[in-house]
Amino acid sequence: METPLKLDTLQTIELAEGVQVQLHPAGPLPRAVALMVDMVLAALIFGGLILGLLFLGNLVGMEMSVGLILLSAFGTYWGYFMLYEVLRRGQTPGKKYMGLRVVRTSGAPVGWGAAFLRNLVRFADMMPLLPQWQLAWLVFGFYLFGVTSCLCTLRFQRLGDLVADTLVIYDKTTEPHFTAKSREPIAPAPPPFVLTREEQVAFIQFVERAPSWSESRKEELVQPLAELLGIQGRGAVQRVLGIGVWLRDS
C-alpha cells in the first residue's frame, strides 16, 4: 500500500473503539540519551549488588557469593531493560527521564514476549561491539546496526523493534522550548474562499505553531499564499493568522 509522504512522523492508528489516535515515534538521539542514563543506572545497580554480595560472602562463604555475583551480572545485563519495560509499562528509568515509552505498533503496552525479543536483539543492534574482553557482555557497543535500521524505517525502529513489532514513542507531548509572546492581538478574519478540511487544518496549525517561528520564517511560509491574498510580507502573515483564528474559534 502506497502511503503519501508526510511532513511529520506521526503515526495514526485506529483503535477497535473506532477512534483514531496518534503516536509520535522518537528518533535515535533522545533514545541514545535514555540509553546512557540506563547504562549508568544498570552499572550502579550491579555495583550495589556486588558490594552486597561480597558482604554476604563473608557470612556464607565466598564461593556462594561468586556464583550469585555471576548470576546478578547475567540478570542485570539481560534483565534490566526487559523487567523495567514490562513492569513499568514500557518505561525504563532512562526512557522515563526522557519522556519516552515502548509500545507495540498497535499502541498497546509491551508484554513479556515483545520485551524479551526486542532486548535480546539489542545484542545485534549494538554491533560493532567494543573489543572483547572477559566480560564482553557488560560492554556496550556502537549501535551501528540499530541506528542504521532506525534511519531506514519511517517509525525509527531498530532491529529489535522490527522483530518484536514495537515502537518507542514520546509519552507526553512537550511544549516548544522557545515561544515568542504575541504582542498584538490577532483580529479574526473569514477566509476569502472556500477551504477544504485539510486546508483549514493547515491554517489552524499555522496559528498554533507560529509563536515558535521567527518573523522571517513566518513570511517565508505564507509566501505561496501571498499572491492569492494580494498582500505581501508581514501583512500576509497577519492575514493568514487572522484566518486561522477565525477558523479555530468559530
Binding site: 565466598m62 555475583i69 547475567f74 557482555w137
Partner: peptide
Amino acid sequence: KFGSNFGMLGFYII
C-alpha cells in the same frame, strides 16, 4: 577453580 557447585551454576548460566 570456582570452588563450589553454586559458583559453577552462576558460571554455566552466564
